[in-house]
């Protein structure tokens, strides 16, 4: 058997899953978004689903909210993760334990984290009750709305809590492979600590930060469960909106759900493209 054949056969199982499930699903979704669904007698494709998506004001509000959630979560998580990695790469007593604690919530599912946020931060949650108990507020319901709130603070909190260790682990590995010698060079050439970080360490670890944060952005932009549990009813995040349409009693809403899903995918791709372009030029220029 030739090498080429071997490579093809070895890759086949993975490729099968990717092609059939991913592109198959995408294709089905695409067809349905164009109102093409022969099973129920829809055989004349049109753009009506897209038209109704783009003429709906709620869609734009949802898009803004979803972008806000994804962007804010990604930026905050990345900054905190870089800070954490800077501390964790130093040697200090108990570093092993701190490192372990830092990574431990990587094993906790998102849903569990969301419920934790709900118990702790909602207006009937532990913090609200504690604050009332210590007379910082009059009653638990005076606690600021951090869950089901219009600014999606609860959602962002949950994402940050979950994604900081994820980005942090990648960045830490990156920093360790870069080593500290480049920073020594920069210091001896007259760079201050901050300048060394900004002009030397950050550009060196940037590829790692970038790929980790792109993953986080794509995930938080397209994820359904966290905004479904912790988000306000209106506007809802795009995936929540799409799911609602999909499960609508009116079957005619389904193409709209599909159109929305396709738009979510396209928007993610476009935003990631610009994010990569822009940030690469900013940091390395």
């Amino acid at each position: 058997m030739s090498d080429r054949m071997k490579i093809f056969l070895l890759l086949a199982p993975a490729m099968f899953i990717i092609v059939v499930l991913f592109f198959g699903g995408l294709l089905t979704g695409l067809m349905r978004s164009f109102n093409y669904m022969p099973v129920i007698g829809l055989t004349d494709p049109d753009l009506s689903a897209y038209v109704s998506v783009f003429t709906d004001r709620e869609f734009y509000l949802s898009f803004l909210l979803t972008f806000h959630i994804a962007f804010t979560s990604t930026v905050i998580s990345s900054i905190l993760a870089i800070g954490a990695a800077l501390l964790l790469r130093r040697s200090f007593v108990g570093r092993g334990i701190v490192n372990f604690l830092f990574q431990i919530n990587l094993t906790v599912p998102h849903l569990v984290g969301a419920i934790g946020i709900l118990y702790l931060f909602s207006q009937s949650g532990s913090f609200a009750r504690l604050a009332a108990e210590f007379n910082m507020i009059q009653s638990p319901s005076d606690f600021p709305a951090l869950v089901f709130d219009p600014y999606a603070i609860g959602i962002i909190l949950q994402y940050v809590w979950k994604e900081v260790p994820f980005i942090g682990v990648i960045v830490l590995a990156n920093m360790q492979s870069v080593g500290e010698d480049y920073e020594s060079v920069a210091r001896s050439l007259g760079a201050s600590k901050w300048q060394t970080f900004r002009h030397v360490l950050l550009p060196l670890i940037f590829p790692g930060v970038l790929s980790a944060s792109v993953m986080v952005f794509a995930f938080t932009f397209g994820a359904y469960e966290i905004p479904a549990i912790l988000g306000a009813n209106f506007p809802a995040a795009l995936p929540v909106l799409a799911y609602r349409k999909y499960t609508d009693v009116d079957l005619a809403a389904r193409p709209e759900a599909m159109a929305m899903a396709i738009v979510i995918a396209l928007l993610s791709a476009v935003m990631i493209y610009f994010y990569l372009r822009y940030s690469r030029r900013r940091i390395r220029g």
């Binding site: 010698d181 020594s184 060079v185 210091r187 001896s188 201050s192």
Partner: peptide
């Protein structure tokens, strides 16, 4: 280090 007026050139240039 940045105030000492000492510059170090490393073996692997860096």
């Amino acid at each position: 280090p940045e105030d000492r007026g000492v510059v170090m050139v490393f073996q692997n240039y860096l």
